[in-house]
């Protein structure tokens, strides 16, 4: 690997870290423009002024905004994002109980989707214009254009209500057998996979078609290469970058999509924790959850960028 590549990759990482800093400011400002006083909100209308003042000091609310920001950021970085305003439990503890569930859901979905989406995307690019391609195109367009909760509810109606294959609700705790594991995850994973596969497949197809239109692919055909060889040795090596990019970008969808799915299936993940926190205006919890989601998102975008750099032959062989 050349110095140029190393420098480019390092600059991408630096940009990601800087952006994360910007995001943290945005999240902090966004959650601090709350009208009214947090201390009063916690203690309720009937609180004595002394109690309010005491809580304000405890929450550093008497400090100027930039000091509070750094206190908050320091807390986040040291793994102590404060306590929930609603039940006074440490935020770190609440998150720790939910994060593994969310990661599990994302991992299972990714394992299911990536191979399917890539295969279908490449096939539909190679057979572009065919019946298969047009059908796939119509299906993915429709799935992408439809709200996630529609797919989730349809999945429940078909698989849980009509066919009774799976339970409509899932609980990740206390899984006993593999069979149970499969049944609990099936519907949430199915719903997420539908949308994720559709996105990933569309992007893979577009990247592949771009390559298949190039002159060197025509040249390979004119050298007598059979379609299999054209795709495997000429098109694929040049599409790895764009495809890796597509995969990373699609996976970032999991973050937003998980919110709806966790609610519909009553899945105890991080996203449901966040939605509950938003409904109860539990700010420390909202801030911490949002920062986790944003970091994951930025991390995926950074991976997408780096994949693009590493797979560019002009940069690799200078």
């Amino acid at each position: 690997m050349s110095m140029v590549v190393v420098r480019l990759v390092l600059s991408r990482i630096a940009i990601a870290i800087l952006t994360l800093g910007f995001v943290s400011v945005a999240v902090f400002v966004g959650t601090e423009i709350l009208p009214g006083d947090v201390a009063e909100a916690i203690l309720g209308q009937g609180a004595t002024p002394e109690a309010v003042a005491g809580l304000r000091a405890a929450l550093h609310l008497d400090q100027p905004a930039h000091i509070r920001y750094f206190l908050w950021l320091g807390g986040l970085l040291s793994g102590d994002p404060g306590r929930s305003l609603v039940n006074n439990l440490p935020v770190a503890e609440l998150i720790a109980s939910r994060l593994p569930n969310s990661l599990m859901l994302a991992a299972v979905t990714a394992v299911v989707c990536v191979p399917i989406a890539l295969t279908l995307g490449i096939l539909s690019a190679v057979w572009r214009g065919s019946l298969f391609d047009r059908a796939a195109n119509f299906l993915t367009t429709s799935i992408v254009a439809v709200p996630e909760f529609l797919i989730a509810t349809l999945a429940v109606i078909v698989f849980a209500v009509r066919l009774r294959w799976f339970p409509a609700l899932s609980y990740a705790a206390g899984i006993i057998s593999l069979d149970q594991f499969f049944r609990l995850f099936a519907l949430p994973v199915f719903t997420l996979s539908c949308v994720l596969t559709a996105w990933m497949m569309r992007m893979t197809r577009a990247a592949m078609i771009d390559t298949l239109r190039s002159s060197y692919v025509e040249m390979a055909v004119l050298k007598g290469a059979r379609p299999m060889r054209v795709v495997l040795t000429h098109a694929l090596p040049n599409t790895i970058g764009p495809i890796a990019n597509a995969v990373a970008l699609s996976l970032s969808y999991l973050l937003g999509g998980a919110i709806i799915v966790e609610i519909v299936f009553n899945y105890p993940g991080l996203a449901r924790l966040l939605v509950d926190a938003v409904s109860t205006r539990d700010m420390p919890l909202v801030q911490a959850c949002v920062m986790i989601f944003c970091s994951a998102y930025l991390y995926l975008l950074m991976l997408a960028d780096i994949a693009g750099i590493l797979s560019n032959p002009r940069l690799r062989h200078r």
């Binding site: 060197y216 055909v221 050298k223 000429h234 090596p237 040049n238 032959p313």
Partner: peptide, 20 residues
């Protein structure tokens, strides 16, 4: 193709696979 009839295209830069 490529054995009995071969082809020399106009744009050499575009006709070579950049990754090989």
């Amino acid at each position: 193709r490529g054995r009995n009839i071969t082809y020399v295209p106009q744009s050499a830069a575009a006709s070579f696979n950049p990754a090989r």
